[in-house]
Simulated assay, not measured.
Amino acid sequence: MTTRPELPVALGETTALVRLAVCYARPDHVFLEDVEVPAGASIVQAIAASGLVRACPEVDPNTMRVGIFGKLKTLDTVVREGDRVEVYRQLTADPKQARRRRVQKTRATGTREGQKWIRGKSD
């Protein structure tokens, strides 16, 4: 689905448009919208044109981290043709702590897989 923002264009003028995607993922829903914005538009303008804030009211692009193809960017970064603008939500768990819990759970089962990284244990 392509959304075309209203562009202030005088008669006889043409404005170059940049096509890109805006995405935001929640555990229960993924927002992915293709949009066209005027050349020179920033990330915050692309997010506004996508309708993300209307679809997901918890999103505040001014306080959340944003990026393009997994690389953190600032809100005033100019978007280019084919970019995927991503809005990142807060982590619900520390990744290091989550991995430690998974390892402890595997070790508690007593299988060789759970024991292979413990020093002094070898078969």
Rank of each mutant, 00 (worst) to 15 (best):
R100I: 11
P38K: 10
A39G: 01
E86M: 04
T77I: 02
G67Y: 02
R19S: 13
P61W: 00
A46I: 05
R54F: 00
G67F: 03
R100Y: 04
R19A: 12
A49D: 04
V87K: 08
Q90N: 07
G70I: 07
A98N: 06
V30E: 12
R107F: 00
R26V: 04
R101F: 00
L7H: 08
I118N: 09
V103W: 05
K105W: 04
T109M: 07
I118W: 01
R54Q: 14
V37C: 03
V18R: 06
T74H: 10
R107L: 06
T92N: 10
T77K: 10
T111A: 12
S122W: 06
V30Q: 13
R65A: 13
F69L: 09
T77E: 15
G40P: 03
K105Y: 04
F31C: 03
S42T: 15
V66R: 05
A41T: 12
G51C: 06
P57D: 08
R101K: 14
A16G: 07
D83F: 02
A98I: 02
D76G: 06
R84L: 07
T15Q: 13
T111W: 00
R102N: 10
H29V: 06
L75R: 13
Q115M: 13
M1H: 12
G51T: 07
R4C: 01
A41M: 03
T92Q: 14
A46L: 04
C56M: 13
A49M: 04
P5E: 08
R100C: 04
V66D: 02
E58R: 12
D34S: 11
S50P: 05
M64I: 02
D60P: 00
V87F: 04
P8I: 11
P57I: 07
H29Y: 10
T111V: 03
Q115A: 11
V87I: 15
R26I: 01
D94N: 15
A41L: 03
D94E: 08
K121C: 01
A21M: 11
E58Q: 14
K73M: 14
V103R: 13
V103K: 10
A98V: 11
A25W: 02
T14N: 11
Q45F: 00
L11D: 15
A48S: 14
A48C: 03
P95K: 08
K105V: 04
D83I: 06
G67I: 05
G110S: 07
M64K: 06
S122Y: 08
M1S: 14
G70N: 11
G40L: 04
Y24I: 02
Q97W: 01
V9T: 15
I43C: 05
G120K: 13
T2F: 05
L32I: 12
A10V: 09
I68S: 07
V22I: 10
M64L: 14
T74D: 15
I47H: 03
L75Q: 09
Q104M: 12
G110K: 11
E113S: 07
G110Q: 09
V79I: 08
A10E: 15
E6I: 11
D123Y: 08
E6H: 12
A93G: 05
Q45M: 09
K71I: 10
L32R: 15
